[in-house]
C-alpha cells in the first residue's frame, strides 16, 4: 500500500487560512489502512480545525467526505455537487489522489493534508515499512523475495557493502541489512550459488528514469 502521515497541523492551518468554506476529502484505500486519511482521520482533522478557529474566535465551514478511491476519476466525480459551495479543498489522500482532485476541479485550490511516504507493508499494529520502490523491473525472483532497491540503503544489486554489522544496515540498528536477509533466504532456499551471479547495471528507465511512467493497456483502454 501507499503510506502517508498527516502533515504538521500548522502547515495545514496556514494553507486554509484565507478560506472559510472547506471541502475535506478522505480516501477509503491505502490512507485508510495506514490511518492517515480515512474517514476517521477526516473527522479528527475537521474537529482540530474547528478547535483552531474557535481559538481565533472564528468559525469555519467544513464539509467532510471520504471517497472510495481518490485516484480514480469516477469517484472524484462525486465531489462535483459540493465543489462550487467551497473556497478550497483539503485532501487527505496520497499525492495521487490530491492530483486527481486538482486535475478535475481546476478552479478550486487543492491542498494536501498528508505527506505521502512510501510503498510499504504493515509489520504489525501501527507499524509500516518500505518494501518497494517501483523500479519497474522486479528482481525479487532472484533476490529471495527481498528487495535490494527499497530495503538496501544504497540500492546495491551486489551487496552487502562493508558497513553491515550484526546483521544491521550501516545506517543504524533499526534497519536490517537487506543483503543479510537476501543471503539468509537464499541459503534457506538452497540457492546460495546464485549469490555469485553478477547482477548487471540496472536499466532505470522503467522505474522513472525515462520520464513520468505511464501504462496503456490497449485491451482495456
Amino acid at each position: 500500500m501507499i503510506t502517508a502521515e498527516q502533515k504538521p497541523m500548522q502547515e495545514i492551518i496556514q494553507y486554509i487560512a484565507p478560506y472559510s468554506k472547506i471541502l475535506l476529502v478522505g480516501c477509503n484505500e491505502c490512507v485508510t489502512v495506514c490511518a492517515a486519511g480515512g474517514r476517521k482521520e477526516v473527522g479528527l482533522l475537521a474537529s482540530a480545525l474547528h478547535l483552531n478557529h474557535l481559538k481565533q474566535g472564528k468559525t469555519i465551514d467544513i464539509k467532510e467526505i471520504t471517497l472510495e478511491r481518490q485516484c480514480d476519476p469516477e469517484y472524484v466525480e462525486e465531489l462535483a455537487p459540493y465543489i462550487d459551495g467551497v473556497d478550497a479543498v483539503v485532501s487527505m489522500a496520497c499525492g495521487c489522489g490530491v492530483q486527481t482532485v486538482a486535475g478535475r476541479y481546476k478552479k478550486s485550490p487543492v491542498f494536501p493534508a498528508v505527506n505521502t511516504r512510501f510503498m510499504g507493508a504493515s509489520l504489525g499494529q501501527g507499524v509500516w515499512a518500505e518494501r518497494c520502490k517501483g523500479c519497474g523491473d522486479c528482481v525479487l525472483g532472484i533476490t529471495g523475495g527481498i528487495c535490494p532497491v527499497a530495503r538496501c540503503s544504497k540500492h546495491l544489486f551486489n551487496g552487502p557493502c562493508g558497513g553491515t554489522s550484526n546483521g544491521q544496515c550501516e545506517i543504524g540498528p533499526e534497519t536490517d541489512c537487506a543483503w543479510r536477509l537476501i543471503w539468509e533466504r537464499l541459503k534457506e532456499l538452497g540457492m546460495e550459488d546464485r549469490y555469485e551471479d553478477l547482477m548487471n547495471a540496472k536499466d532505470w528507465r522503467p522505474g522513472g528514469a525515462a520520464g513520468p511512467g505511464k501504462i496503456i493497456r490497449e485491451d482495456l483502454a
Partner: peptide, 11 residues
C-alpha cells in the same frame, strides 16, 4: 474550553 467560544451553538 474551545466550544464555549463564539458561534458554537449554531454549529
Amino acid at each position: 474550553g474551545p466550544g464555549k467560544r463564539t458561534g458554537i451553538d449554531d454549529r
